[in-house]
Design a binder for these strands. Structure first.
Lengths: 241, 241
DNA sequence: TGCAGTCTGTGCGCCAGCGAGCATAGTAGT
DNA sequence: ACTACTATGCTCGCTGGCGCACAGACTGCA
């Protein structure tokens, strides 16, 4: 099956004014991201910023002892490469492809130039950054107070919100790495959700059957993040201002 | 004892170009912040942004059931009111005074105007924001993987880094609220640190005796955050560029 | 000086999640 | 169809942190 790719599948690109979009368009390069690919290593400079369309990229921090924890997730609603325009160039976290798919990319310097026009594009990127901040903050809260099962619900919801379908290609082992918990913990929680008929999974595939049920079973963190993304990044469709 | 107050005690104000500083100066208002004061409620719009000098403000998220968790901490190195210039105006978190003291403040609209000049001040604020993002990310990691004792070390270090002395006016109960753990957990961890001679405390007062010892006993999170603040916000002293 | 209020210390029992080890069941490749 | 591999399921015992309850100690105020 061939899925047509169009930069407008990325919500940020889609929200640009036509004049800004047209200027960027010739420089957008479509690429494919493989599951597990490290798009950006901790502390290293990005040559490009990425606008995912059908892929998801996780920002995670890997500790000295090898343990890891997800900080935030970026999909077709956002951009990977915040430090490029925030001025720091690098971050201590690593960007890993969590779900294979396509993404557009743009030379970092070009984005910097666009950002420095201090126009609608800058305002859009800053609002997106604030939404991302909320996601990180809520991750911190969730890590502190909520059960593995609740966190799994939140994580599944955030993921399918950023994908076209309702299915994830993802092993429990990888999910455990993202959440920073034991694989067995994920197995147990996923088993419970499956028994409840909320999800269905088989070896590396998870499909969400009952979104609403998952939301009910999740902690408030998902809703807080979702509400904030919707508030900060309504569907502009080329009318960013 | 009268401590002279000067906007330059706030590192961001201190880092401004003279011309920018002089324009802001007449609009800076010195205020006192009381321990426990809520500077900004979750979801409400800030009328001012704050540049703490001798106070510390915590950003924390309070859950529906009343439990809370600290997201980040702002002191004389930063500014409270990021959403003002990021464009979202509000956030889901609450800002609470963690350590009483002074702060300058500035009408939100004035800061917005300055930010929109797209000059050195804008770049400075964005770099600060990135540092804050790192702090939040590391809080998430720390919440996931580290013990109460390690987190207490990190928290103490972040706090005294933002204060002139080495003493904190702070009950264990409040610390527990910030960290989102039980008060008894803090009592136990603090007792251990005192036994090791790293800190000394009595009813509402904690003094750090051995900074280096605390750093050794802390998890890597403190160092990651500190390094990132130093990298992104070197001591500019009026030479922001 | 004494009392009220608040902070700190301690001792329970309890449970989620950890670590390690191993058994089974899918899946991909030849 | 067979094999090698990897993903998932299940079982131990262990421990860090939780919730609760209460005792002692300090401080501020009358």
């Amino acid at each position: 099956m061939v899925i047509l790719q169009d930069p407008h599948q990325n919500h940020l690109l889609d929200a640009l004014l036509k004049v800004d979009y047209d200027r960027l368009f010739p420089n957008l390069e479509l690429i494919e991201l493989q599951l597990g690919e490290v798009v950006c290593e901790s502390g290293s400079k990005l040559k490009h910023v990425y606008f995912p369309t059908t892929s998801i990229v996780s920002l995670l921090y890997v500790m000295e002892d090898g343990a890891s924890a997800e900080i935030a997730v970026v999909g077709n609603e956002g951009i990977l490469g915040i430090p490029v325009f925030m001025g720091g160039e690098t971050t201590p976290s690593r960007a890993v492809v969590q779900s294979a798919g396509h993404s557009y990319r743009l030379r970092a310097q070009l984005l910097k130039n666009e950002f420095n026009r201090a126009g609608p594009l800058q305002r859009l990127l800053l609002r997106y950054t604030q939404a991302l901040i909320t996601q990180m903050a809520q991750t911190a809260v969730c890590n502190r107070h909520h059960s593995v099962e609740q966190q799994l619900c939140r994580w599944l919801l955030l993921s399918i919100d950023r994908l076209p379908g309702h299915e994830l290609i993802m092993t429990q082992e990888l999910i455990a790495n993202m959440l920073g918990v034991r694989r067995e913990g994920v197995t147990e929680a996923a088993g419970k959700l499956q028994a409840l008929g909320l999800i269905n999974y088989r070896r590396g595939h998870i499909s969400v059957l009952d979104r609403t049920g998952l939301e009910k079973r999740s902690c408030e963190c998902y809703q807080v993040v979702k509400t904030e993304y919707d508030r900060l990044l309504p569907a502009f469709h080329g009318i960013a201002h």
